[in-house]
Design a protein around this nucleic acid. Sequence first.
DNA 1: TATAGTTAGTGTGTAAAGAACACTAACTGC
DNA 2: GCAGTTAGTGTTCTTTACACACTAACTATA
Lengths: 223, 223
Amino acid sequence: MNNIVMNNVRVAVDNCIFAVRDGRLEVLLIQMKKEPFDFAWALPGGLIEAGETLDGAAARILEQQTGVRDVYLEQLYTFDDRSRDPDGRVISVAYVSLIPWEGRDLKTTDKYRAVQFWDCDRVPSKLAYDHREILDYARNRLAAKIQYTNCVWSLLPERFTLSELQNAYETVLNRNLDKRNFRKKVLSLHLVKPCGEKSSGGRHRPAMLYSFESREPELVEVF
Amino acid sequence: MNNIVMNNVRVAVDNCIFAVRDGRLEVLLIQMKKEPFDFAWALPGGLIEAGETLDGAAARILEQQTGVRDVYLEQLYTFDDRSRDPDGRVISVAYVSLIPWEGRDLKTTDKYRAVQFWDCDRVPSKLAYDHREILDYARNRLAAKIQYTNCVWSLLPERFTLSELQNAYETVLNRNLDKRNFRKKVLSLHLVKPCGEKSSGGRHRPAMLYSFESREPELVEVF
DNA sequence: TATAGTTAGTGTGTAAAGAACACTAACTGC
DNA sequence: GCAGTTAGTGTTCTTTACACACTAACTATA
């Protein structure tokens, strides 16, 4: 009977940082510089530090890589990572972050070979560790969550048009929505409010700008 | 700058084991026998053992306490436990298990003072560690999950009446459902199938017995 | 300055789903 | 055979979801 209690598990936090850009869902990956995954792409992450909470570690990773703070950040799932180095066990607590495409500021460090956003549909087929599994899980969770919470706020800037909002939903859900039904829905839910100004700059009719009623997590039956 | 990497985190698995009994949602608690929580009630759990996966640890705890296997078992959330002993850090990966009230077989060991099911609405107001928080989180997750998956199968025996099924939903959701609408719904979803036999023994009209189409996790929009 | 190009903004009708509601049927125990 | 108890069944109404097409307002350029 196996009763050896594990006292030396290492705990990593990995963060799926998503943004919407030009109708594509993108995720931040870093290219590794160390064996056994040299050159492989991976989710940003790392072992938790002393005195740090799990949420704190996820927020730290997010800010270190993108400079972004105070966005939607949610624990996703805890993975048993069987592909990590065999000298001691690692479990990975995965997080999802949603950031507006504008406002990010990618940091390059010599810790990694590269840091960049990837179209989720075009990430390298093999990622380091079990990060492919984590990413797939995260996309599914995000698509579910955007339908019953207001988390979409975290993908958009302070002020936005209803078309931009619709585009964020369409991108995450990977399907088209009817413009009139969409507007009826979000307005009737009081998810957003007009802020009286209009967009400018496009070679077309200017659009009313909106902002979110709340930028705190709330349950809202959007679809 | 704090860059001390934690290498010696201890990882515990705690399991919220639910059953439905006489219209009440019950949860299994153990009464502790060691300081600093001597006499306090807690969720069954413990540190993961060598070579064991997280899911494996949860299944082990479930079977050790109840003798039950092969039921619905789902990872809930990973908690940073700040109330644990200060000599080294513990994080707790919480699980939810659903078991049929019939078929359990509680084990008493001298590891604990007592092991028993508690009506969820009447558990002691203070549980050990952060287990009160975990339990509240688990109840909410269960109430959500029973509405869009078929997980209710795990609360019922192999064969059951539609009234028993309805009762399981009403108990978890903590609200009454209309009998005719309920039956229309579950039958149209093909969640269950009649198995041709009738219940007996009650001092009333016997009911048709049903069984689940599937006892594997599936997404089903029940409500 | 007229026009082509582009996105913004708006309402109605139809189909599907959800919610409310009450009686008869079939068994048991006395 | 009667009282007690749970099983089983349809219809109507309300609400929500879905499909669908044109005009408005701006910019750039010819």
